[in-house]
Write a protein that binds this DNA or RNA. Structure first.
Lengths: 235, 235
DNA sequence: CTTTGTAATAGTGGATACACTCATACAGAA
DNA sequence: TTCTGTATGAGTGTATCCACTATTACAAAG
């Protein structure tokens, strides 16, 4: 179930939130693109008030930028910002795995191996859902930390970079699964040494950043658009 | 200027946000207390719509809890949750100080000493503003990391526990300044060893948690109320 | 042709109105 | 008395409306 939030939308506002979030994660709404409440409201068959409130939530998660009287745009991340998010994620996931260590019994380790298999299979099958499996892998480890607020923060970070990861994985022939070496993380967990596992997880998370950054730099993307957009729509 | 956000409120919604945030931080609105949009709107001479949108922002920062059709309450933290926030803060501030290390020149170190002096002075003068000075100290170090998103996240964590810190410091005779040993952090920074500084900062942040927790436990607070509240208002 | 001022339009923030939900109090039945 | 059903009121969620802002297109002046 990766980092997707579950449950049904109880209110129209919640429905709007989920719909917009989904469209940002999937890349339908691209960085720099302006979101017009009226349009989205019509699409979802509601008034623009719940949509506006959904914007607020998204803005607080950094997924969208609202400037007074100037509307709401999907926030593009600069390469520096993407780096920063990976840095933050590295220490948070490092913390998570350290806290999770006591809970890694034989069953949990077996499940971890299952995750590796699923990831590998998804990668071999073209990589379309590799990202999802990868997030599930991380979510499983973080989940064992038993720290809800920590988990929520890590999930938010995964979501923030997801659109960029998506184009990256879509454009490279073999997705990162070949080089990402998740098994190093599992191996470190297996040693039982919490400090070591934390250090390995940190490295593991950070290792992705420069390669993603390089890809985005080569395409001149990030901070602006995943596709061509009018200059006025830029951040 | 500690972790307070600056600038004027451009919009009514922003004004509402700042006002409510201030009242939560200061302890005027206490954990478990229900916030009624109409009332607050009247106080601020606006309609309840911008107040509702301010609620959304506060909810995303975890300061407030909104349940559909059941209104908005100031979220009380359990002792476990407070621990968790300190854990998160420890790794984030550890990261911040590590990243800040290259920027600690003589001038920065001198400023750091100034912060220590100001904190000590505030502590000696009764400790009323010790908390503010303490936050400024941390904010200064984090600021040197040059990582805006990291800084914002740390600031949010400081704010989340501020109400609890406030009652604690108000009830103990000598505020933490005597035992907190901030100078250990400064000393570690002075060595120039980034790894060491990170480790010391982590310890420093974590050290506060058990003592705050013990205090709250002794008063039977946290998770509920800083004062007596009807059971129906509990989380 | 470029620049500058102006009008038109799209879009935003906020207020109000209305329907619905929830909680409480109270009355009647067991 | 205790329990249960109902009524009442407070509060919430959403739609609609209005005033204001910003942007764009266009026209007149240079």
């Amino acid at each position: 179930m990766s980092f997707a939030s579950k449950g049904m939308a109880a209110t129209a506002q919640d429905e709007a939130y989920r719909a917009i979030l989904q469209d940002i994660r999937s890349g339908r709404y691209q960085p720099g693109e302006r979101l017009i409440p009226e349009t989205i409201a019509r699409e979802l068959a509601m008034s623009r008030m719940p949509v506006r409130e959904a914007f607020q939530r998204l803005a607080n998660e950094g997924l969208v930028l609202i400037r007074p009287n100037r509307g709401c745009v999907v926030s593009g991340l600069t390469i520096e910002e993407i780096y920063e998010l990976f840095e933050i994620r590295s220490v948070l996931e490092g913390l998570a795995v350290r806290l999770a260590m006591p809970r890694f019994d034989a069953a949990a380790l077996a499940e971890l191996d299952d995750h590796l298999v699923r990831m590998h299979r998804a990668g071999a099958a073209g990589g379309a859902d590799w990202l999802g499996k990868h997030q599930e892998f991380h979510a499983y480890i973080c989940g064992l930390s038993g720290r809800p607020k920590l988990i929520a923060r890590i999930a938010a970070l995964h979501i923030a970079v997801e659109p960029y990861m998506r184009v990256w994985l879509h454009h490279v022939a073999q997705p990162a699964h070949a080089t990402e070496r998740q098994d190093e993380v599992v191996e470190a967990i297996r040693t039982g040494d919490a400090e070591h596992a934390e250090a390995v997880m940190r490295d593991h998370v950070l290792r992705t950043a420069p390669r993603l950054a390089e890809f985005l730099r080569s395409r001149g993307q990030a901070a602006g658009a995943l596709s061509t957009l009018p200059a006025s729509a830029q951040i």
